[in-house]
């Protein structure tokens, strides 16, 4: 469990005069579900975008699977892009393709797998994310919000990635849908040996799924570690994040059990 899949070192990001990150460092270990937390505008989605090569930080380094993504050639980047799956906040399914075509597209483009086998793979992935089989011929516009997230997860899983990056996977879902989505992430992690990074501010999914987490505040990592460790951090930003009424109610039980159990 100890070798890091992603290492982020001293990242500085600036948009115009607005500095978003000022020396952000963290590491994500193999096989864990890692939460990136922070208030709106704290730069957690920006950090995720820098990891997946959509943005370039001003300075610092990000290493994924032992290779730097900042100073990489285009062919290295292509190899990297084959090894992760990404779930965007609003699904980002290709709206002119059906669900099955969305899932199959990277298999069709990048592998030589025969079409009949691709169809079987697509059916399996659809079933794996808990969607009924008939949605494969639906267009994204015909799906509900929760189904879009699941279909998009199936697309992210199409090529059996070892690293899954999720941008607010439970936002916009009802509590039941969100909980079953969390459950799904846990199951998939266990079954497929995934390392999962998720940007979230859903306290329930933090408590239920996340192994370790980092809280971004004031352009830096305010705290990093397991939930219990982070909650015991006396920093005011952490207190503000977890200390509100919602945080208290949700966390109380879990922390109480953890602390007393030791």
């Amino acid at each position: 469990m100890s070798d890091p899949v992603i290492t982020v070192k001293d990242i500085v990001t600036q948009f115009g005069d607005n500095r978003v990150h000022d020396g952000v460092s963290l590491h994500i270990n193999k096989g864990e579900i890692y939460g990136l937390l922070g208030g709106s505008g704290s730069g957690k989605s920006t950090l995720l975008k820098e990891m997946i090569l959509l943005l370039q930080p001003q300075s610092g380094d990000i290493t994924i699977f032992g290779h730097s993504v900042i100073n990489s050639t285009e062919s290295e980047r292509d190899l990297l892009r084959q090894r992760w799956g990404i779930l965007f906040q609003n699904g980002a399914l290709y709206s002119s393709l059906t669900v099955a075509e969305n899932i199959a597209i990277s298999l069709k483009e990048y592998t030589n797998i025969p079409m009949t086998l691709i169809n079987d793979i697509v059916r399996m992935k659809i079933d794996m994310v808990g969607l009924p089989a008939h949605v494969k011929d639906f267009y994204p516009a015909e799906l509900s919000g929760g189904m879009v997230k699941r279909a998009s997860l199936a697309r992210a899983l199409a090529r059996d990635p070892k690293l899954l990056l999720l941008d607010e996977p439970t936002s916009g879902l009802d509590p039941i849908g969100a909980e079953s989505f969390d459950q799904l992430i846990l199951e998939l992690r266990a079954m497929l040996d995934l390392t999962v990074v998720m940007v979230t501010h859903d306290l329930d999914s933090i408590v239920n799924t996340v192994d370790r987490l980092a809280v971004l505040a004031r352009k830096k990592v305010a705290a990093q570690g397991t939930l219990t460790e982070v909650c015991q951090n006396p920093e005011p930003d952490i207190k503000a994040f977890f200390g509100g009424k919602r945080g208290q109610a949700r966390l109380h039980q879990k922390i109480w059990n953890d602390v007393n159990g030791k």
Partner: peptide, 13 residues
């Protein structure tokens, strides 16, 4: 484990 997983989710063709 993988065998169980795939069999569980294979939809009949």
């Amino acid at each position: 484990r993988l065998d169980t997983l795939v069999r569980q989710h294979s939809v009949s063709a």
